[in-house]
Design a binder for these strands. Sequence first.
DNA 1: TTATTAAGGGTAATTTATGACTCAATAAAC
DNA 2: GTTTATTGAGTCATAAATTACCCTTAATAA
Lengths: 114, 114
Amino acid sequence: MTKRTPSQFGLPPELVDTVSKLGNHIRVARKRREMTLDDLASRMFVTRKTLSRLENGDPGVSLAVLASALWALGFEKDLLEIVHPEKDNLGMYLEQRRLPKRVRRSKTGDDLDF
Amino acid sequence: MTKRTPSQFGLPPELVDTVSKLGNHIRVARKRREMTLDDLASRMFVTRKTLSRLENGDPGVSLAVLASALWALGFEKDLLEIVHPEKDNLGMYLEQRRLPKRVRRSKTGDDLDF
DNA sequence: TTATTAAGGGTAATTTATGACTCAATAAAC
DNA sequence: GTTTATTGAGTCATAAATTACCCTTAATAA
């Protein structure tokens, strides 16, 4: 009944800190480019206040806002780096561990031709 | 008057694609760990539907949801990689370009002792 | 094939984000 | 020191996210 979104009852403090640092990184990138909050916000098609929330580490802002900021600052590719399958060492290990020791062809022989 | 959030009137298609790929990466990581949507969602303190939106690339989900997913999958450090000041080549160039050619001490001599 | 489970998707109620506007405080420029 | 511009923050209205619940479809296992 009661709603408990992560932003409402609080993320783990570690995550709050992480999002906060991300916001600061965006702020640094903006200032290095000599852009005001209004400058960057208008390029992102959001208001100054929304961008301000992002820079201040508010976990409630949407992915769209984050993505727009990255795009407007020239970091649009960075989002593809995170959770990348090829960098997921644990995941790759788990996947290979699940492969059968031997491969066994089905009797019906209805295999694919590839 | 009219509200135009990025998610509403649409992000640049390039960004929609990026967010979509990010969602897929999360999905791959989840499946590699043999977790169902319910499994992961409960660890994130979020409903299955919200996680589903994230995996399907909905730009409207909050940063909190993304961060929770990364945390629950063991990628919590990835968020610190993006927009990292030390990887911001353009930003570092702009910053250094703005440094004065010569440093000039103020006459009053009210400098800091550091 | 059949049974089981995961995933997709709809609705209504509630919370929250976002925009638009304004004012105050702070910092930068002169 | 004075002026100007940037930033922070509050309010209200509206759009959207999120939950909880339910049902259907698709995929997996037996």
